[in-house]
Simulated scan of single mutants.
Amino acid sequence: MASLGWQVIRALFGVGERFVPGIAGRAAFELFARTPSPRKQTHGERKAVSRAAKFMQSARHHRLTVGSDCVAVHEFRPEADADEAGRVLVVHGWRSRTEYMKAIVEGFRAGGFRVFSIDLPGHGQSSGRRLTVMKAVEALATSAQWFGPFDAVAGHSFGGAVAVAAAAGTVKTAAPLAAGRLILIAAPNSLADIVDGFSREVGVGPHSRQAMVARIERLAGRDLQDFSGAGQLARLPIPTLVVHAPDDREVPADDARDYGAAGRHVTMHWAPGLGHRRILSNPDVVSRVVSFAGTQGRLAIAS
């Protein structure tokens, strides 16, 4: 059963749809872009952050200005006995942060990579309480100006969708992200589907949704349909690894299949039983991700 707060929100959007759909659409956009409060972590989230404290102390921490936000980028050097294999950018998902990407980051470090893990606006050590695909892509573009080009970019969930949009240059306010390889872990394929799911959840009606979409398209300078991960990837012949669990309850497996159909440059790896988040810490997944990044990412950039 929905909480009282969500019932009230749904009721308000119902009234807005009937009388002021333009205002309701703008309010829906603001709610859609609102990031979770850092003060309201679950017990599991607090535990994960606490367990990763020593890991975070090993990083060099950078602060970048992206629009009105201060974005944190954490730099992890390769392990002492490893030759440097290249540079990797790691991008977390919604309601996530660098600490949750610990196993992936450590895998890359052990493989000799210098890792730059970004906390997207409104997440982790970055400022703000608002995040859109546009803001996220601009944050990645700014990171590339300082620390790129990257031999590989690895994104989980929302971060995977952002990585594709950044590499494809879909957001007109940001330069395309130079990457030798892309690694998409449990990534959603369609921004339009995400908007539809949100609209159903909070009771945004069709006219209000139209106003919300118009707001997104004005900010992006693109039609909403342009944010199809598979469509972008089909026009972006970068070697790409798609990792997904068939039992993922947050991002349907069909999204991964759509990515896989984007072209022969896409490699699929199914990870049964790992769901949406456990997939990040699975040793086999980490090994495959690091192996895929390899040294060939450098060759892709050079060519």
Rank of each mutant, 00 (worst) to 15 (best):
residue 200 R to N: 14
residue 78 P to S: 08
residue 87 R to N: 09
residue 165 A to M: 07
residue 206 P to M: 02
residue 138 E to Q: 15
residue 220 A to K: 05
residue 198 F to T: 04
residue 205 G to S: 11
residue 92 H to W: 01
residue 295 T to D: 08
residue 196 D to E: 15
residue 132 T to H: 11
residue 90 V to R: 08
residue 250 E to I: 03
residue 210 Q to G: 06
residue 219 L to K: 14
residue 208 S to G: 10
residue 223 D to Q: 13
residue 117 S to T: 02
residue 63 R to E: 05
residue 289 V to L: 14
residue 187 A to R: 05
residue 88 V to W: 03
residue 287 S to M: 01
residue 63 R to C: 02
residue 134 M to Y: 12
residue 277 R to H: 10
residue 290 V to C: 06
residue 116 F to C: 07
residue 191 L to C: 02
residue 1 M to V: 08
residue 93 G to S: 10
residue 120 L to P: 07
residue 187 A to W: 00
residue 183 I to A: 07
residue 174 A to V: 06
residue 6 W to M: 13
residue 240 T to P: 03
residue 34 R to L: 13
residue 245 A to Y: 04
residue 133 V to W: 12
residue 73 V to I: 10
residue 239 P to G: 01
residue 42 T to N: 06
residue 96 S to I: 00
residue 296 Q to N: 10
residue 38 P to D: 08
residue 71 V to A: 04
residue 224 L to G: 10
residue 41 Q to G: 09
residue 287 S to Q: 14
residue 144 A to D: 12
residue 81 D to K: 15
residue 114 R to Y: 05
residue 225 Q to D: 11
residue 149 P to V: 01
residue 58 S to R: 15
residue 120 L to S: 05
residue 170 T to E: 13
residue 258 D to L: 15
residue 120 L to M: 14
residue 251 V to P: 10
residue 277 R to D: 06
residue 219 L to I: 14
residue 127 S to C: 04
residue 127 S to F: 02
residue 93 G to E: 09
residue 9 I to H: 06
residue 266 V to A: 04
residue 68 S to A: 12
residue 197 G to N: 14
residue 187 A to T: 10
residue 278 R to E: 11
residue 82 A to P: 02
residue 206 P to F: 00
residue 209 R to F: 01
residue 108 F to K: 00
residue 48 A to W: 12
residue 163 A to H: 06
residue 96 S to A: 12
residue 161 A to C: 03
residue 214 A to H: 03
residue 27 A to I: 11
residue 241 L to D: 02
residue 167 A to N: 05
residue 82 A to M: 14
residue 212 M to A: 10
residue 184 L to S: 05
